[in-house]
Structure formats: C-alpha cells, structure tokens
Amino acid sequence: MVQRIDVHSHFLPERYRAALAAAGHSKPSGMPAIPEWNVNEHLEMMDRNQIGSAILSVSAPGVHFGDNAAARDLARYVNEEGAKVAQDNPHRFGMFATLPLPDVDSALRELDYAFDTLKADGVVLESNFHGIYLGDARFDPVFEELNRRHAKVFIHPTNPHCPCCQVQPKGEDAASLPPIGYPFPMIEFMFETTRTVFNLLLSGTLDRFPNVQIIVPHAGATIPVLADRVAGLSPALGLPAKLDASKFMASLRGMYYDLAGFPLPRQLKALLEIADPKHILYGSDYPYTPEALVSTLATQLDDSAQLTTALRADFMRNNALTLFPRFA
C-alpha cells in the first residue's frame, strides 16, 4: 500500500482544549464535543490506515477569542507543542503554524518565530478572522511575508461571519447547536472556504503575492461548481487588474486541493475539471473525523474506479512530496 501523506490533520494539545472550553467552544462549530487527542493514538491511527506522515494544524475556531494578548500566548503554545511533536517524530509529523490574527503585528512576529525557530512546514489560516476574510488588504503585510518565504498556506474553514448564519435555533437541543441550527462543518464550512478563496482571487491578493502556495481543503468545497459563474462575472466588477475567465481558471489550477471529507462519488469529478491532477493531496481531517470514518473514506479512494493506479499514488503521496520533500 502507498504510505499516504496527510496534509489535513489536526491536533489538540491539552491547554488548547481547555482554552476552547473556557471560550465557550466546548461544542466547536456545533459538533458534539471537542475531540480527544494524543500523539500515540494519532500514530496508531496512522499505522492502521497506511498514513506515513501527517502535517498537524489547529482547526476552527483557531486561537483568537477576542483578546489579543491571550491569542498571542495561545498561538505560541500550540506552535511549540506542534513543533515538539514534529521534532520527536520527524518522519511522521509536520506542523502548520497558527497565527494570532486578526492582530497583524503579533501574527508577523509569530510567523517569524514559527519558521525561523520552530521550522514549521507552513501556516494554517482560518477562512475568516472575526469577519475579515483572507483577501482583505489589512492582511497584506502577512501575505507579503509569506510570499517572501515562498510559504505553504493551508486554508481551513471556520465559523461563518454573516447575519444569515446567526439565526438562533429553538427547541430542547438549541443550547448544543450553533446559531444556524446545525453543525457548521456540514454545509457552512464549504461556503466559508469558497468565499475566502474567491476573495483572495478577486482582491488580487494572489496576483500580488504569487509565491504563496495555497492548499484548499475538502476537495475544493463548492469552488468547482461556482468557478465558471464567478469567472464569467468578474470582468464586470471593474477590478483594478484585469481578471478574465482564463486568468481566473489558471489561478484556481495553480492551487493545491486536499481530499478530506466526501470527495466520492461526485465531488472529485468536479474538482478534476478545475484542478491540476498533480496538485491533489490526501487529507484525513482526523480527529474531527473519527477513525472509523477516516478508514471508510480512505478505502473508497483506494477502491474507486475513478482513479488509476498512477493517479491514486499521486493523490495519496507523490504530489505532497513536491511540496514537502522532507517526508520522502
């Protein structure tokens, strides 16, 4: 079996789990509970599912719960914990560093520390930070530094920041649900990813910072379905830099996409309409996706008639090695 490289894999060190609960996220994004996590169980799960290496990241809702100083401290803690796991298991784990955005000055300091001292493999950016999406000019200093470093940026969706998603559910289970009434990962995460990626393109951010290598989660979310519509309408926006359909689609093709979630039987077909097959990567979404489902989804990919043997090897491992050759 090909030893998969998992670019969408999360970790929850103990103090981070406690901080989530203290900030009111004991049922993060409407999910039933904060997952349990430890290094040994993660390694055992990897061994059972032919995962040779995994790059750890913090999932939604990140580390900034309203206080800049607390977010700086929590980002430093999770980054040092992630780096320690990677240093103790250099062939098995990597780490995407967390930044305490929207505090840009602190994020720049943490970015330097994460790359220069902790030797992070890249950074994880939530789809929005308190309503500021990634293409916002306020984040340009961060993207400028990421561009200078030719950094890998793993985008992860977080809770939506829009009025239509803030309707409070009713009924006896209301307290356990997010405002929209069902877990955000079910539907809203897909639109969060789509919104922030299109924002990066329409704002010209990726044009200005072309060295940043973007990894889009969940098989491109709804991007493959909406790409033609957004590309077709973008010339009518009067953008400062011309963005016609061919340039728009070329930008999407230049990104990387992980297969976490439910890419089969339909979503992968749509993804392959816009993505470079050499830019598709494996992702488990463990431990937010429990091992039983990780195994089921991986088996679907292993057995799918949509994938040739060569494509499967590329998606599971080879493509990731072009981004992260240290796992060879």
Rank of each mutant, 00 (worst) to 15 (best):
M1G: 11
H10Y: 07
E14T: 14
E14G: 13
R15N: 14
L20W: 09
P35K: 14
N38E: 15
E41N: 15
H42S: 11
E44N: 11
M46H: 10
D47I: 05
R48C: 09
N49G: 09
I51P: 08
S53F: 05
A54M: 06
A54R: 05
A54P: 01
A60T: 07
P61A: 10
P61G: 09
D67P: 09
N68V: 14
R72T: 07
D73S: 15
L74I: 12
Y77W: 09
Q87W: 11
N89T: 07
A97M: 08
T98Y: 02
T98D: 02
P100Y: 03
P100N: 00
V104Q: 04
L108R: 03
L111A: 01
L111T: 01
D116C: 01
T117A: 12
T117Q: 13
G122A: 06
V123R: 02
V124F: 08
G131T: 09
I132K: 14
Y133E: 05
E144M: 11
R148D: 13
R149K: 14
H150S: 15
F154A: 12
N159C: 11
P169G: 01
K170V: 13
K170I: 10
L177R: 15
P179H: 09
P179W: 09
I180K: 02
I180M: 13
G181P: 06
G181M: 08
F184R: 04
M186E: 12
I187K: 04
E188F: 12
E188K: 11
F189H: 10
M190N: 12
F191K: 04
F191R: 05
T193M: 03
T193L: 03
R195D: 00
F198W: 10
L202W: 02
G204Q: 01
G204S: 00
F209A: 01
F209T: 03
P217Y: 07
H218N: 08
A219E: 02
A219W: 03
A219K: 06
G220M: 08
A227S: 12
G232D: 02
G238D: 09
P240D: 09
P240E: 10
K242V: 08
K242R: 11
L243F: 03
A245W: 00
K247F: 01
K247Y: 04
R253T: 02
G254Y: 00
G254D: 00
G254T: 00
M255K: 07
Y256F: 15
Y256R: 00
A260H: 08
L264T: 02
Q267A: 15
A270E: 11
E273R: 12
A275Y: 04
K278Q: 15
H279N: 12
Y282D: 06
Y282L: 04
S284C: 07
Y286C: 06
Y288A: 07
L297T: 10
L301A: 10
D302A: 12
D303C: 12
S304A: 15
S304W: 11
S304V: 13
L307W: 10
A310I: 13
R312P: 00
R312K: 13
A313F: 08
D314S: 12
F315H: 03
F315V: 00
T322E: 06
